[in-house]
């Protein structure tokens, strides 16, 4: 981005995402579907995330202070409203919600980062460049989902006492204190498979690569794939659920379960949740 380039093509540097058929001619647009009726809240995905992405175990004292680094967290709610009676019996079970970075197409975090450390990649990921991050935490402040995690400490100093550090995934950097991090859709896996595909002169096939959480999930509640490929399972579910990436309000049949969280904030998330189903007659 030279100055001349900036002056000449300034319109192309404006964030104008998303728009209709934005990824029509693109090779990749990574997206996800989480079926809340299949999700049991078992935490297998979160542990997989710790293993894959070198997430530090912060310990009880730091967890208490709110310094946990779980990129993916399972939330458990007891109700939709603002209050419940004290003798409420959760007779319809609990409400589990796996929540991680929604890889928004118009991400509130991206516009506010002063140094452009978080920005959108060509394949539709909301990336975080650790080397560039200065740690203003504005992105976290502006994230409606609060799924960004800051390195409050130099976790590498204590989170992996020898020889636990041998478990660290060499494809993922261990973050230093003072930088922001978050779910990357396992970008290291995506990168590897895209490189392999490129070597073979093809595109990544559906199912060839998946995120650690999706791979672990015992109920296969998480589907991950390339939305730009209409044959991929993810694209099929998005289409079937009548979710359009570029819309902030979906016009879909009543009995379709797909929705995106906080669409009204016009963040255009890349994660579609499928509504939890309960047999109300039971």
């Amino acid at each position: 981005m030279s100055l001349n380039n900036l002056i000449k093509n300034w319109t192309s540097f404006r964030a104008r995402r998303p728009y209709l058929d934005q990824y029509k001619n693109a090779d990749y647009k990574w997206a996800m579907v989480i079926d809340l009726d299949a999700c049991t809240g078992c935490n297998a995905c979160t542990t997989a995330c710790y293993a894959e992405n070198n997430l530090p175990v912060v310990g009880k004292e730091r967890f208490e202070k709110g310094h946990a680094m779980h990129w993916m967290r399972i939330e458990r709610y007891w109700g939709e409203g603002e209050s419940v009676p004290v003798d409420m019996v959760p007779d319809k079970g609990a409400q589990f919600l796996p929540m991680m970075c929604q890889q928004c197409e118009a991400a509130p975090c991206e516009v506010v980062c002063p140094v452009g450390a978080t920005h959108h990649s060509a394949d539709g990921l909301n990336t975080q460049v650790y080397n560039r991050c200065v740690g203003s935490r504005y992105c976290s402040a502006n994230c409606p989902y609060k799924v960004r995690y800051f390195n409050w400490w130099q976790y590498a100093d204590f989170a992996w006492p020898n020889p636990l550090e041998l478990q660290l995934n060499p494809d993922v950097s261990v973050r230093s204190k003072g930088v922001m991090e978050k779910c990357t859709f396992c970008v290291q896996r995506l990168r590897e498979s895209m490189d392999h595909a490129k070597t073979d002169g093809r595109l990544v096939r559906d199912g060839e690569v998946t995120t650690a959480c999706a791979q672990a999930c015992p109920t296969s509640a998480i589907t991950f794939g390339n939305l730009a490929n209409p044959q991929s399972q993810v694209a099929k579910v998005w289409k079937n659920q009548q979710i359009a990436l570029e819309k902030d309000e979906q016009k879909k049949d009543e009995n379709m379960r797909g929705y995106r969280i906080f669409e009204e904030f016009r963040t255009y998330p890349s994660v579609v949740y499928l509504e939890r189903v309960r047999d109300l007659e039971a």
Binding site: E82, Y273, R278, D279, L280, E281
Partner: peptide, 21 residues
């Protein structure tokens, strides 16, 4: 609680058409 946000939305089983998915 979800405090009125649409986080985990629940659909009645008789309304959902899982076979169409």
């Amino acid at each position: 609680l979800q405090q009125g946000r649409k986080l985990v939305v629940t659909m009645a089983a008789d309304k959902a058409e899982l076979s169409k998915e």
